[in-house]
Simulated scan of single mutants.
Amino acid sequence: MSDANDDLRYVYAVCHPLTAPLAADLTGVGGVPPRQVSHEGLTALVGAVPVRDFAAEPLRAHLEDLDWLAETARAHQRVIAALTTVTCPLPLRLATVFRDDSGVRAMLQDGSERFRHVLERIDGRVEWGVKVFLDSEDGSGGEVGGGPREPARDKPRTGRDYLRQRRSQRTAREAGWERAEGFARRLHETLSLRSDDARLHAPQNSALSRAPGRNVLNAAYLVPRSHSEEFVELVDRTKDEERDTTGLRVELTGPWAAYSFTGDSSGDSNGDEIEREDGA
């Protein structure tokens, strides 16, 4: 067992001083309960981690180990999720580590202006993620762009028939994609009007996310916590209104800490947020 003086300080998030306690059984990376380090009205939630795993060189090696990385990310997210129930934190990048409490306080001092600005912007708010997928643009799911798939028995008998069938399939795919884009655009516009801020993320790569279908919309919305129920109902209602748009699937995730809104107002990431469990 390592000497506590040799441990490093793993920082999960920055927030205002907590006015409510975290769950007594909450543990973070390495099974260690997080604690608060405060400096001039800002608080960092930290946990002790061993030098043998989190010094620069071993950490670089660990970050190539997908199992280690997944376990650490789950522990990190567990602390952020618990923190989000009692405050509106600014999550830091996975494996943000300092030598000791003095280093953490120096980080709070150096970044105080930005931290205060971001915390003011996200105060009382949570993030909701909304994704739209087009499941059947190629017809493999039974329908193509809103129309029934051609029966297998309708095989082309001539080269001309083959070309005609290919044009028909391409037209159906294009029409389906246009309908999906239109739906996603309308949904984003509607949800943006009912949120304090919104971010459009790059579409997810299905090969990496393993989510079925083609990702048409991948967006995040900053919503007052007190209005979250109305926001969820709005998403559900919009989905019902588009019931006739076949092949589309809408996924709602959250509420999260405001991962997508800790950068500047242009939407550029400041590099300090981590990926949520839904992969956004």
Rank of each mutant, 00 (worst) to 15 (best):
H62D: 03
R186A: 15
L217I: 12
D110Y: 02
V37L: 02
L252D: 01
V49E: 07
A56Y: 05
E229H: 13
A61S: 07
G145R: 00
G103C: 09
A13D: 04
T72R: 12
R153L: 15
D138E: 03
G124L: 00
L42E: 09
F133L: 04
P151K: 15
P224E: 06
L191A: 13
A257D: 06
G30V: 06
R35Q: 10
G41L: 11
E113L: 10
R149C: 13
D67E: 15
S102T: 09
R125G: 00
R225V: 12
F133N: 01
D67A: 13
S226P: 01
A13N: 03
V104T: 05
S168T: 10
T96R: 10
P17W: 08
V232N: 04
A75I: 10
D3Y: 00
G263I: 04
R237F: 04
P224V: 03
P224T: 06
E181V: 08
V49Y: 08
P212R: 15
D101G: 04
A13V: 05
R225Y: 11
D154K: 15
G145K: 02
D65M: 12
F54D: 01
D135G: 09
L90M: 12
V250Q: 01
I274Y: 09
Q204C: 04
L94S: 03
F183L: 14
R9I: 00
T43F: 02
A23S: 15
L94Q: 06
A198F: 07
V216H: 00
G124V: 00
S195L: 13
R186F: 10
H188V: 06
A48T: 12
V79Q: 04
R116M: 07
V86N: 10
G254N: 07
G267W: 08
F183E: 05
G254F: 00
S140R: 14
A81F: 02
T253S: 15
L119S: 04
P151T: 08
D135N: 11
S269V: 04
Y10Q: 08
R237L: 09
S269Y: 11
V97R: 08
R164I: 14
Q36W: 05
V51K: 11
R210L: 07
D6R: 14
K155Y: 09
L252I: 08
E40C: 08
R116S: 13
E150R: 15
R114T: 05
P203E: 03
R99K: 09
V235A: 07
I80S: 05
H62F: 11
C88M: 04
A81P: 03
Q204T: 04
A4L: 13
L248Y: 06
K155L: 14
R52C: 09
D25M: 05
S168G: 15
R185Y: 12
L45K: 12
I274S: 14
E229M: 12
R52M: 07
L83S: 02
L26W: 02
F231V: 01
M107V: 03
Y259S: 09
P91R: 04
A258I: 01
G247W: 04
S209F: 06
A219P: 03
R160V: 15
R166W: 10
D138Y: 07
L191G: 05
R121P: 00
L63A: 13
A73G: 10
G279I: 03
